[in-house]
Design a protein around this nucleic acid. Sequence first.
DNA 1: AATTAGCACTCTCAGCTCGAGAGTGCTAAT
DNA 2: ATTAGCACTCTCGAGCTGAGAGTGCTAATT
Lengths: 344, 344
Amino acid sequence: MEELTERQKILLSLIVHEHTQTAKPVGSETLVRQYSLPISSATIRNEMTAMEEMGYLRQPHTSAGRVPTEKGYRFFVSNLLQQPMLPVATRNTITHQFYQAQQQLDEWLRLAASVLANHAQAASIVTAPHSKKVAFKHLELISTRASQVLMVLVLVGGEIRQQIFSLNEVVPQEKLSSLAAELNAHCQNCTLVQLEKLDLDLDDVGNIVLGVIKDQMRLSERLVIGEIYMDGLTNVLAEPEFADTEQALSALSIFEERNKLDDLLSRSFLGDEIGDVQVLIGGESTWEELRQCSLILSHYGIQDQLTGTLGILGPMRMPYGQAISTVRFVANLLSDLVAENLIE
Amino acid sequence: MEELTERQKILLSLIVHEHTQTAKPVGSETLVRQYSLPISSATIRNEMTAMEEMGYLRQPHTSAGRVPTEKGYRFFVSNLLQQPMLPVATRNTITHQFYQAQQQLDEWLRLAASVLANHAQAASIVTAPHSKKVAFKHLELISTRASQVLMVLVLVGGEIRQQIFSLNEVVPQEKLSSLAAELNAHCQNCTLVQLEKLDLDLDDVGNIVLGVIKDQMRLSERLVIGEIYMDGLTNVLAEPEFADTEQALSALSIFEERNKLDDLLSRSFLGDEIGDVQVLIGGESTWEELRQCSLILSHYGIQDQLTGTLGILGPMRMPYGQAISTVRFVANLLSDLVAENLIE
DNA sequence: AATTAGCACTCTCAGCTCGAGAGTGCTAAT
DNA sequence: ATTAGCACTCTCGAGCTGAGAGTGCTAATT
């Protein structure tokens, strides 16, 4: 594989830059004019031809300007993009917003999605932190009416699961409370497996409750990702590449199919560390529907313990520098918030 | 105001029907052919002219067919539409889906949104049931680490609010538990106002906790509507009237602005009973962005106690019969589920 | 008085041409 | 290796055209 020369790298950067601004193919003349280059348009044309042969650029049609290919963007992002921190002012604004919000996880996640969407002018997605190891933390049983019981189950990590169920008999609140107390005493930090092994001496009601607890823990275990927060879907519609509704539809449909989303967010992430920002350009993300799009994703939370995913979806022509910095910054912010409020 | 003749009413129905199928202006010839009418196209043209003068129809341009106006749709929905029940098979499928799902509120709401979206081929929205009168039901305090405490507060109606906060000192779980027990004993069914009046003899920690409880209740009280579930946004994109992205953008942007949504769902509903289905056609819904759209909304839940809103958003050209029946059916289904699982 | 056949007229839509503009690739000169 | 010069190519929007759909009007019919 041939290497790009220094000059070609510069040109690639400029082409990417110009294209992200104008959304139109970039011509050799334009490039000279726009950036006052010390070389002639003819030279640029030669270089462009070379880069096209190497696969970094492509022409939408003969005698149009050049547009970066997937490979071109990939090279740009991996090798040419120096990632500036977000401007201090921006960072402060964002941080400020987080401290102004209700100090609650769901508010933070909603806000994170909103911040991502606004600062990157793209669709954003944030999943609630979720722990792979599901363990019992605390149980509460509340009698509602007749034989109906509301169970509130807190898992290690802070996930809260609730379930309403009926018993065969009416059980007074006192009995429920003492049952809860007993289970709380014995099951502290137990995983599902440990719970199975535990030899508890329970009566009928106790066993039903234990069954419900296990169900809920199983459910939580099976869950790949936590609750999903999205924002800025309309930003995508505003992009010129999606002026055709067909395109927009195929891109946004990803957001409406939960299992695809699960796949996308989990599979593409095998072995990624918290704090790494992953950029999926066009077809890299095996999803045909996203051929035109790029994804910028990052994990946040506490490695191997309690993690969520966040990121943005936009057209391949995306201000990667800005977008990546924003994703990284918000991911770190959420990681800090999760760490501060961790429930162990 | 002149009245429509019987024949004009029939024609209006047919025009609406034909237009919802084809999405194109309906011509007099087409109408005769399609429905084997016993009158000639010329007569229909005369009638059409009359109806256009009365404001029920309009021509997109000279010598095109007619399209129902907002007023036309309004008359059709109010006077001409006989609303069939959903076919038994459909109803069974839907019911079946609900009983197959995890028996949990959030799953039901998600499912409701999905069912609405699929059966009406439109965007759907469902808000979690929320009670105007906020009252204390049950409290739980869980020590997480150091002086951090996780509070889980169950409100009458079943809403669960959680909050993590820090105390000035490390308080053992036993102390927290007994504090919770005490508050549970005294605050049962208290509203915020009653809570203020209650003369509890609490220590520092107790007062902090009480403060947090009040905060959460205040927050819940201020909440106009509950959590929002949406689905089928892409269905809207698929409609031909939204082939132009601009249009689609303005319609969908409603879904992304929480305060507009709050307004829309609450304001348009003053004094509506559970079970009534409300149809907002085009500009009727004071929102300029929705000029092209219709909304079909219904409350569900338990009147004056615990209510949510659900509905669909589609183009004005909508299969109203089908859509209204679906909304009504799902609303009733959710009402039943809420009633069965009410936490009093 | 209501209905209808007949017909001229209007407007859209898809397809076509055409010229301007932007951009290229090649060649020959520097 | 670079560049000026130039012929060539392709898109895009404007303007034109004919077919098709649909109307409104008038005069005849029931």
